[in-house]
Each structure stands twice: as structure tokens, then as C-alpha cells.
Computed example of a mutant assay.
Amino acid sequence: MRINRILLSAPLVVVALVIQVTVLARLQLPGAVPDLLLLVVLGLALVYGHVAGALIGFFAGLLADVAPPSDHAIGRYALVLCVIGYAAGLTKPDSGQHRSATVPLMVVIGAAIGSTLMYAGVGSLVGDTAARHVGLVGLLLSATLYDLLLAPFAVPLVMAVARRTDHEPLVGDGSGSPSGTSGSRDAGYGWLTTGTGLKASRGAMKSVRTGARIGSQRGGLLGKSARDKVGRIKGVKRL
């Protein structure tokens, strides 16, 4: 990962975790707790891609595992967010930017359901049966609902900040190379390309003029020789 991505991701993850622990977890909502940390990981993964999404998800989940009041095994949520961040990053288009909000919305829904199922599944493997007492269906519905209500305020903001601080070109041209690369290359070497273009155009004009002159001279010579031949033929006929 780049340094600018790390410098942006770390504060966003820390702020999201603090808000989730100090504010969202104390709302005493029925079912699950709104997962702001998950939404921040999704927003960064949608912009940075699957590799960065997996790394950000792992360290964000690991930070949530050790942050108080932690009541589960360390590494449990890190595994969940690592997989979720990787899967969300795979939806990043080749152009670098989603054209509509449909794909991010579907990613949020899938991540809310997938993270809840994975968290409950890993918990059952390590002996945590809390999901059975609460009800897995209720957790799925409440987690999806809360994340969908919170996503319009968190995900677009995180994606906008990530794009603003990231210097990768977003749109590629038809040749497969990024448009920013060709544009900057032409702009950086414009004074060279302009000079060579003028020289090439002048040389082409000179060659055209020279060819036209040679062609006219050849045409004149051919016409003169043809007229001489016609005169000779006419003279022979008169004889």
C-alpha cells in the first residue's frame, strides 16, 4: 500500500471505531449494532481495490478485536473484515470509479449479511453461542437495516475522500493506457513534439513541391518528345 493510503486509512479506521464503541454501541438498539467500521472498510476497498481492501480490513478488524470492551477471541473480526474487504475490492471497475450507486449499495447489503454470517460461523467454531440466543435471523435483518440506513452518510464520504487523496488515474483511453499518462506525457514534452511536428510538416511540404516540379518537368519533356515523334510521323507520311 502507498503511504498516502495508509495515512488516510488509519485515522478513518480509528475514528470509526471510537464512534462505534462510544456512541453506536450505547444506543441499545434491538438486534445488531450499526457497524460503522465495516462501512469505512467498504468505502476504502471500493476505491483502492481488493489487495488494499483486505489489508485495511484485517488491521481494522484486529484493532476492533483488541479494543475494549472486547468479548470475543482476538483475530475473529480481523478475519471477517479481511475477507469482506477483499470481496468488496473485487467490484472496483477498470475505470476506477463506479458510474452508479447500485453496485456500492449491493456491496453494503452483501457485506452486512456476509459479515454477520461469518462472525457467527467463526464464533460457533470457537465455542461462542451468543448468536443462537439472540437469533441469527434477527441479527441478519437488524444488521442489514442499520448498515443500509448508515451507509448513505458514511460510504460516499469515505469514497470521496479516498479519491481526492489518491493519485491513480481513474479513466483509461481506448488504447488501454490511462488517459492521464498520455496527456501528461504530451504536455511535458509538448515543446519537443511541436518542433518536430513543424520540421516534419515543412519537410513534407518541400517534398511535395519538389515532386510536383519534377513531375511537371517530366511531363514537359514527355510532351515535347511526343510532339517531335508526331511531327516525324507526319513528315514521313507526307514523303
Score class of each variant (00 low, 15 high):
230 V>F: 12
25 A>T: 05
106 M>D: 04
217 Q>M: 09
97 Q>L: 12
71 D>H: 08
192 L>G: 04
140 L>F: 07
154 A>E: 08
134 V>H: 03
24 L>G: 00
166 D>N: 13
60 A>T: 07
29 L>G: 05
120 A>W: 03
112 A>Y: 03
176 G>I: 13
81 L>K: 06
12 L>Y: 05
113 I>F: 06
169 P>A: 07
37 L>K: 04
193 T>L: 15
26 R>C: 02
28 Q>D: 14
76 R>G: 03
20 Q>V: 01
88 A>R: 01
164 R>S: 15
239 L>D: 12
150 L>A: 13
27 L>Y: 04
68 P>Y: 15
22 T>V: 14
203 G>L: 14
153 F>D: 03
9 S>A: 15
175 S>G: 09
9 S>W: 01
53 G>T: 01
165 T>S: 12
105 L>P: 05
67 A>D: 00
194 T>F: 11
45 A>R: 02
172 G>E: 13
42 L>W: 02
146 Y>M: 06
28 Q>T: 12
205 M>E: 15
76 R>F: 01
50 H>C: 07
129 T>G: 05
224 K>H: 12
18 V>Y: 06
207 S>I: 11
223 G>M: 14
107 V>K: 05
203 G>C: 07
144 T>C: 14
77 Y>W: 15
21 V>T: 13
223 G>W: 13
24 L>I: 04
192 L>D: 03
215 G>I: 02
226 A>W: 07
21 V>S: 06
169 P>Q: 07
8 L>F: 13
95 S>R: 11
215 G>P: 02
172 G>M: 14
76 R>Y: 01
174 G>V: 10
82 C>G: 12
231 G>W: 10
38 L>N: 01
200 A>L: 14
185 R>P: 00
5 R>F: 06
13 V>S: 07
157 L>F: 14
35 D>A: 00
233 I>C: 08
21 V>Q: 09
55 L>A: 13
121 G>K: 00
131 A>W: 09
53 G>R: 01
144 T>S: 15
164 R>W: 15
228 D>M: 09
29 L>Q: 05
118 M>G: 00
157 L>V: 15
138 G>Y: 06
6 I>C: 04
20 Q>C: 00
26 R>H: 12
87 A>T: 06
81 L>E: 02
215 G>K: 08
192 L>F: 09
7 L>H: 02
74 I>Y: 04
119 Y>A: 11
232 R>A: 13
96 G>E: 10
154 A>W: 08
235 G>Q: 09
126 V>F: 08
175 S>E: 11
2 R>P: 02
91 T>C: 13
53 G>Q: 01
191 W>M: 15
68 P>L: 15
22 T>E: 14
163 R>V: 12
234 K>A: 11
215 G>F: 08
221 L>D: 12
181 T>C: 06
161 V>I: 11
148 L>Q: 07
15 V>W: 03
133 H>P: 01
106 M>L: 10
16 A>L: 04
